[in-house]
């Protein structure tokens, strides 16, 4: 049954393939005719576009002379993208799926800070406040999963909760905590030692002394965790052997 299915499928593909091209052409031309009313646009696909890059996404993307710098002690997960002017300092960790794109301005992740899963950190050209528009995350900062940071300054020893959004020119001062899901509008300053939450972020209460002492402890705990992840990765991957094998199989000279 499976064999039959395979044969019919193969036959279908064989018969369809010339027709398929025509169909594709028709569909694009149909799309073009429907959209001419909105404004003439046509899609001309190029044959050079790769559908599968055997190298995957490069982790470190230099732009011009800007080369992202990662300290030897920092852990950056393999599917993170660092582009442009990004500095990851000692002991910092950037977890899986994050994107740190410093193509317009600088991004710094400070000592022992951590940026958790699927965060996006970007910098704008200029910020509405007089502050420099670079994104700087200083030491012992914990940034929760799914956070979005754009041109903001986070002073030492803060916690940014999960799913929170910090917009252009916002400033989080030392020992403050943002709760999960909070949104900091452009140019907002969160004073030292306070807990803020909500969309847009509002003051909730001041932090007790014990809580402010807990903040660096959390950062250090995550740093410890990142060390165990870091030790899992060897300095060089062995994928080049796979590539060599693959190329040999296909008869491409290395």
């Amino acid at each position: 049954m499976a064999a039959l299915a395979r044969i019919t499928r193969k036959a279908m593909i064989n018969t369809l393939s010339p027709g398929h091209v025509i169909q594709r052409a028709l569909s694009t031309s149909a799309a073009a005719t429907t959209t001419t009313t909105a404004g003439a646009k046509t899609i001309t696909p190029s044959a050079d576009r790769v559908k599968w890059d055997y190298r995957g996404q490069r982790q470190i993307i230099p732009l011009g002379q800007w080369l992202p710098k990662v300290a030897v002690d920092a852990y950056v997960a393999p599917n993170v993208v660092l582009a442009g002017q990004v500095t990851v300092c000692d002991g910092a960790s950037v977890w899986a799926g994050s994107v740190l794109r410093g193509d317009l301005n600088k991004i710094t992740v400070g000592f022992c800070s951590n940026v958790q899963e699927r965060c996006v950190i970007h910098a704008a050209w200029s910020s509405p406040t007089g502050l420099p528009a670079e994104t700087s995350i200083e030491r012992f900062v914990t940034i929760g999963a799914y956070s979005l940071l754009r041109s903001c300054t986070i002073e030492p020893e803060c916690i940014i909760g999960q799913h929170s959004i910090l917009m252009e020119g916002s400033l989080v001062e030392t020992h403050s905590i943002l709760e999960a899901g909070s949104l900091v509008p452009p140019g907002r300053r969160i004073p030292t030692g306070e807990l803020w939450a909500g969309n847009p972020a509002r003051f909730v209460r001041t932090l007790t002394h014990e809580e402010t002492l807990e903040i660096p402890k959390l950062a250090v705990a995550i740093n410890d965790l990142s060390k165990s992840h870091f030790s899992e990765f060897l300095p060089y991957s062995t994928v080049y052997l796979e590539v060599e094998k693959f190329k040999k199989n296909l008869g491409i000279s290395i």
Binding site: L16, H20, W52
Partner: peptide, 16 residues
Amino acid sequence: FQEQLSRHRTLMNIFD
């Protein structure tokens, strides 16, 4: 864990 080539497809079709 043996590392493999990236199998991520940037552009992928679903049947046709």
